[in-house]
C-alpha cells in the first residue's frame, strides 16, 4: 500500500477529469473525512484515511482490497478505469447517456451503443467525451466515450454507433477474477 507518485497521480486525475470534470475536487475533499488514492500491485484504491490507518496494521501480503478499486496501470504505463469505480463516478458525472431497455442488455454484453438504442443524451456533449451510461430508470450501467456529439447524433444513421463501450457492470460476472 503506497502513495501514488506524482506522475501516476496526474494520470489518474486526468482520466477522472475526462468523466467528471472539475468534480474531481469533490471526490477528494469530502465532508465525511479525507479520502486518498493508494496503489497496490498496480491497482489504485480510493479509500478513507480512517480505514487506511486501520489497514496499515494488516500485512500487505495478506491484504486483498481496501475501500474501492478505481482501476489499474497497464503495462504501457496508462491508467485504465475499472467498472468498480462506477459507484463513485456516477453521481458526479457531467455527461450522461440513457439507453432504451431493448439496448440495455446489448450494452451489458459489451457492445457499443447505436443510435437506435439511444434514449436520451446530455445536451452539448462533444465528440470523444467520457460519459456514464444509464438505463431508463437511472441505474448506472457503465462508461463509454461518445463517438458523435449531441448535434451529430440527431442526423445519425439508426445503426451508427453513438458511444464506444469501455466498461459495463456485466463485467462483474464476465471477468470477476480480473477485476482486482
Amino acid at each position: 500500500m503506497k502513495r501514488l507518485t506524482e506522475e501516476k497521480t496526474k494520470l489518474v486525475l486526468e482520466k477522472l477529469t475526462k468523466y467528471i470534470g472539475t468534480n474531481v475536487k469533490l471526490l477528494l475533499d469530502r465532508p465525511d473525512g479525507v479520502y486518498c488514492f493508494r496503489e497496490r500491485k498496480g491497482r489504485v484504491y480510493y479509500v478513507s484515511e480512517k480505514i487506511l490507518s486501520l489497514a496499515s496494521m494488516v500485512n500487505p501480503d495478506k491484504l486483498t482490497s481496501i475501500g474501492t478499486c478505481f482501476g489499474k496501470f497497464t503495462k504501457s504505463g496508462k491508467f485504465r478505469l475499472h467498472i468498480t469505480a462506477l459507484y463513485h463516478l456516477a453521481p458526479y458525472v457531467q455527461h450522461k447517456i440513457w439507453v432504451k431497455p431493448s439496448a440495455e442488455q446489448q450494452f451489458l454484453y459489451g457492445h457499443h451503443i447505436s443510435k437506435s438504442g439511444l434514449s436520451r443524451i446530455t445536451e452539448n456533449t462533444p465528440q470523444y467525451q467520457g460519459v456514464v451510461i444509464f438505463s431508463t430508470n437511472n441505474i448506472p450501467l457503465g462508461f463509454g466515450v461518445t463517438a458523435k456529439s449531441t448535434m451529430d447524433c440527431k442526423y445519425a444513421d439508426p445503426m451508427a454507433t453513438i458511444c464506444f463501450h469501455q466498461a459495463d457492470i456485466g463485467e462483474y460476472i464476465r471477468s470477476e477474477d480480473s477485476l482486482i
Binding site: T64, S65, T68, Y87, I169, Y172, E176, L179
Partner: peptide, 17 residues
C-alpha cells in the same frame, strides 16, 4: 471483493489471514 464493489461497499478491508 467482487460482491463488495458491486454492492457499493466502501468501508471494507479484505484480508486473507
Amino acid at each position: 471483493v467482487g460482491n463488495f464493489h458491486r454492492l457499493g461497499i466502501v468501508n471494507s478491508i479484505v484480508c486473507t489471514y
